[in-house]
Design a binder for these strands. Sequence first.
DNA 1: GGCTCATGTAAAGGTCGTTCACATGAGCTG
DNA 2: CAGCTCATGTGAACGACCTTTACATGAGCC
Lengths: 246, 246
Amino acid sequence: MSWRKETRRAERGYHHGNLKEALLQAALGLIAEKGAAGFTFADAARMAGVSAAAPYRHFRDREELLSSIAQRGFEQFESRLTAAWDDGRPDTVTAFERVGRAYLAFAREEPAFYNAMFESGVPVDSNPALQAASERAFNIIRAAAERLAALAPPGTPRPPAMMMALHIWSMAHGVASLFSRGDAARRKLPMSPDELLEAEVLIYLRGLGFPTDRRPPAKSAEPPPVPPEASSGSGVPPGGPWGKPK
Amino acid sequence: MSWRKETRRAERGYHHGNLKEALLQAALGLIAEKGAAGFTFADAARMAGVSAAAPYRHFRDREELLSSIAQRGFEQFESRLTAAWDDGRPDTVTAFERVGRAYLAFAREEPAFYNAMFESGVPVDSNPALQAASERAFNIIRAAAERLAALAPPGTPRPPAMMMALHIWSMAHGVASLFSRGDAARRKLPMSPDELLEAEVLIYLRGLGFPTDRRPPAKSAEPPPVPPEASSGSGVPPGGPWGKPK
DNA sequence: GGCTCATGTAAAGGTCGTTCACATGAGCTG
DNA sequence: CAGCTCATGTGAACGACCTTTACATGAGCC
């Protein structure tokens, strides 16, 4: 794809013109290939066609580049979670599960971002902008949990919405990190990570008193459920993720 | 502690006598300090008082050292999980939750091992012994889930035991990895990781139809619960992890 | 046209991982 | 005990990386 700038010296002047962006893109590719640990500043420079010292004009050091990527990652993450949540349409539980799937999809489709965000060792508080982006993303989950909490049937113990949000986050991250990416995906599973997480969230929601039968409980006053975007292939078989109660 | 061997050249002969073990110990300390990514082979050699080339007599390369540590970690992990499970005493649910706490405790108290095992990028299948150790550890969780599954009340959808085991693993790993160790612990939480995980597992179990009231249901025929080993400080407040149902 | 300053370069210092030829000495063999 | 052998440790060297420093270039502005 985008050749032009990021090639050899001859094809451009002394000045690159867009080095910062080129470095970010190069790093993204390298991290996707070899992980944040294996990514090298020098490689990124080489890939952008500049000397090894040039990147230092745009990033204090290697870690700042990583941190920038993590920040961008959180921004994209936020936008994908927002889209998945879709303000709770068509119904809160459905939308909530969609957020879970979006989490996994992001981890799978944007391994470089996910790696930089959660597995690169970059401390969240190394950069205020990073921290802010991270919080904005989490707030989507939190807002969804808030709505869910408001809906929880009485008569069941009900944790604070914040705690519910953290629960969902930990489940999604746990599944993603153990089974859904890179080396971790080599652990052989009798089911897909998506199925695993979906079942987990369903059981959890049932534990909170939510009706989680997939069949619409009685055609309530909501529009017919939107077909989940990625129901092809590893979709949950009709009747729920693990079949009927015995 | 064990000084003696692992110091300077003068104090030992040309041969170290116990270098392999010394290197493992040194690496363990270094990883605990700076993470598996920051740990260097050269540093471990220095700490053991030998030249930078010496470690190559005992490990093919840096990764093999890491992999050895991960393997030992899984072995200790297994033994701690086994102890926590205590074959399901005094009752399955209680023991199951104890396993969850043991998981977190291990992640917190043995950060070096945990790091090498799950966050160092060492692929599980890089070494058959490592893979075997990892599977043995997981099998504890799996066996516990098996017992739990056999006990699940009818009338509720019931996932395969394997899936339950994976759910528990993902919750524990998610909480540990996001909130319970190193840099991640800097995310400020309104509760302790232990509380978070305990509540998560309780809700999950309730979703499976298990009665999870903390107050002993009526002083059943079991001995008074053993006080959890680390109940100081962040213990769960009486009345359950998040208070009563509204 | 000339100045300035952001941006890029080359060179150098320090650290690592890894390899190689060589040194040492523990333990066996006779 | 003499001598041999082989596992174990050494020092030097290579190439790669991160980072800093002094210097070069040229885009944009007066």
